[in-house]
Amino acid sequence: MVIAIGFEGSANKLGIGIIKDGEVLSNCRTTYITPPGAGFLPKETALHHRENVLAVLKDAINESKIDVKDIDVVCYTKGPGMGAPLATVAVVARTVAQLWNKPLLGVNHCIGHIEMGRIITGAKNPTILYVSGGNTQVIAFCRKRYRIVGETIDIAVGNCLDRFARILKLSNAPSPGYNIEQLAKKGKKCVTLPYCVKGMDVSFSGILTYMEERAATLLKEGYTEEDLCFSLQEHVFAMLVETSERALAHCNSTEMMIVGGVGCNERLQEMMEIMCQERGATLFATDERYCIDNGLMIAHAGAEMYKSGIRMKWEDCTILQRYRTDAVEATWRKD
């Protein structure tokens, strides 16, 4: 039996979760929300994490009803992410590990998403679409590693959505993507936008530029904000579903899983579901508790690493802003 605590703060979400052999004991989170039209910057985000981390930690411990003595391993996000927020949270994880005299493990954020998705949904060996504010990857497990089969060659899909929300000055609460999704539900007309798929890779910067340059004109020409949100979603999600389908076919896989913050978009899930039905595959998706960055996923992935015998020296418990999904050997997977 392994009880693990996980600290996550690679972007604007600060999360701490405790897990006991796959059983969720607590999963607490707070989000740094910026005013409409503005994004989150490293310095201010780190400040937010610093101001809130102890309160979230207390909540997570209280909610879990465990004694900190019983924790086996302290896990934190090693990367990828923004430097300052990562470092802030890593310092706290390092401190409590020493206070409580527990081993410390740095976890790859992307692996956290994947392993959390697998345990929540029960998918065995899925092809994975990982979509968030900073990452867009199509991933398949092969030769002991999560291989990136396709990915964005410029900005992440979530970044494209967030920045489009800024053009329209939409609220960043609870998240820009959520507000785009709600508006898109009322959209009726679809504007033709650039559609950019290269093999299994995708590109979103062209669509964003197109929108930046033309949104104002389109609004004057009779398209509504709802129409623009709808058009954007239809285009970028179609690109993601298309590359996912190609990866499914390439890897002869029958399971598809969506993880990451954009993964809780219901229209994306719906499109993916239709694609899966058409080819006899099964879709696995999770809701916002596990899709959006959280501490629990770090705890769970860390626990898996810990059980498989991985230990880290203090001097290796650093942070990495760039840390690829395929840089980690999945020692805990037996297939």
């Binding site: 972007a11 968030s132 900073g134 410029d154 900005i155 802003q321 760039r322 690829r324």
Partner: peptide, 13 residues
């Protein structure tokens, strides 16, 4: 160059 581009794009999650 494209290979490097591939590695660079990993930023925030």
């Amino acid at each position: 160059e494209v290979r490097l581009r591939g590695r660079k794009r990993l930023v925030v999650g």
